Computed example of a mutant assay.
Amino acid sequence: MSTADRPAESASVASDVAAVCRDAEFVRLVASADGDALAATGVLARALAATDRPFQASVVAPTATAERATEADATVTLGRADAAADAAIPAGSDPVSEVAFRAAEELGSADAVLALAGSTVADATPNGRLREAAGVSRRPGVATPTTDLTEGLAYGTRLHAPFSGDPESVRAALADCNLMLAAEDATALDEDDRRRLASMVALRTVGADDANRRAAECVEDALRPHAGGPFGTVEGYGDVLDAVARDAPGTGVALALGHDAREAALDAWRTHGQRAHHALANATTGRYDGLFVARGESQGDAETPVGTAARLLRDFRSPEPVVLFVTDGQAAAAAVEDRQLGATMDAAVDQVGGRAAGSGRHARASVETDTASFIEAFREAL
């Protein structure tokens, strides 16, 4: 699809969603479990609330159906296409949250900061108009959702460095560049300090022994963040939205709707980030032609965030364009470009049993076989 085609197609989708919402007496918003879709849900929900339109918002697992026995006059799915929906904004060439923003504008009220936060955790790039509408500007430094730098660098999932997931390693890294005084209060940093911090983070991320070539490009997403929003930086806001969408959907919906869920959301974000970095750092990896596979260790009763682990593996570790992260009963795949991973995951699950869902660049599955058998099935399907 050419870039010129994208605005017209997105505008058409936005208008269709706005029309469905405008004509319904009750709207049910069903989001895929990721930060972009969650933000889109919040944007539409706030627009509906501003016009006193009743709605219900929920986040569902990637492999779950949007069907539910309710009295909803209309169902709108975000981040997923579903036959049960009256309208949908599937993952595509524009961030889901950006398309939702356009629909909300047609409804009369649109939260640009929330939409921009969601777009920062989408694979698609938002256009300049959304950034302009948000009214935020960039500043030196690193994107975190908290002024505690130790937490921000240890648990944030916008990058994966040798210190990720380990607060003590973060403190040592800060001490090495004379930034320990600001470890618990980033507001103490001046602009030169922020630039020094960003340089340290970039160098340690790219200079890791197992870093891939893509890491140099992807770490830029964590640097020079946009200042603003309820978590200090827009990119930090997006990181929290993505974590709660995947691990604490109830808290995620409350946060996206604008309720007082900050502390609960940060708690979920810390746990999610620690588990994702731990899973990636301790995984056993294998390289195949065009595919990089990581097998995650069990984390006790805690469920491994395989979707986040797969994204980090793709962006910072994998030498191949497609990655597969697997644990007992769960798998996630991610690709640098559109590789129809949803269809690939469907084909793999058809061989071994389970449920799958995905798009061109991402896919998830719940599987009913051992990891070795599933890896072989995915390789054959790919």
Rank of each mutant, 00 (worst) to 15 (best):
8 A>S: 15
8 A>L: 11
10 S>N: 10
16 D>C: 10
20 V>G: 03
34 D>Y: 01
35 G>M: 06
38 L>I: 01
50 A>S: 15
52 D>Q: 11
60 V>I: 15
61 A>Q: 14
65 T>P: 08
66 A>H: 07
69 A>G: 08
69 A>V: 15
79 G>Y: 02
80 R>F: 00
80 R>M: 06
80 R>S: 02
84 A>K: 09
84 A>H: 13
86 D>Q: 06
87 A>F: 03
91 A>N: 09
103 A>P: 00
105 E>T: 08
111 D>T: 02
114 L>N: 00
118 G>A: 04
118 G>I: 01
119 S>V: 05
127 N>E: 12
131 R>D: 08
137 S>D: 14
138 R>Y: 04
148 D>E: 14
154 A>M: 11
154 A>W: 03
160 H>E: 07
165 G>I: 07
166 D>C: 09
181 L>K: 12
184 E>M: 07
190 D>Q: 07
191 E>M: 13
193 D>Q: 10
197 L>M: 08
201 V>S: 00
202 A>W: 10
208 A>P: 06
208 A>D: 12
209 D>H: 10
210 D>A: 15
211 A>I: 03
212 N>Y: 07
212 N>V: 06
214 R>A: 13
216 A>P: 02
219 V>P: 01
222 A>Q: 05
222 A>D: 03
225 P>L: 12
225 P>M: 11
227 A>Q: 13
227 A>T: 11
228 G>D: 05
230 P>I: 08
236 G>I: 04
243 A>I: 05
246 R>I: 15
249 P>L: 10
249 P>A: 10
254 A>P: 01
256 A>L: 04
256 A>M: 11
256 A>T: 09
258 G>Q: 02
259 H>G: 07
260 D>N: 15
261 A>C: 09
263 E>V: 14
267 D>T: 15
272 H>Q: 10
273 G>A: 11
274 Q>W: 12
276 A>I: 07
277 H>W: 09
277 H>G: 06
278 H>P: 00
279 A>S: 15
289 D>I: 05
291 L>T: 05
303 E>A: 15
305 P>R: 06
305 P>Q: 06
308 T>P: 09
309 A>H: 04
311 R>T: 12
311 R>D: 13
316 F>L: 09
319 P>E: 05
322 V>H: 05
323 V>A: 09
323 V>F: 02
328 D>Q: 14
332 A>C: 12
334 A>Q: 12
338 D>Y: 04
343 A>Q: 14
344 T>N: 03
345 M>Q: 04
354 G>H: 03
354 G>T: 02
355 R>G: 04
366 S>L: 12
371 T>E: 15
377 A>L: 04
379 R>E: 12
382 L>I: 10
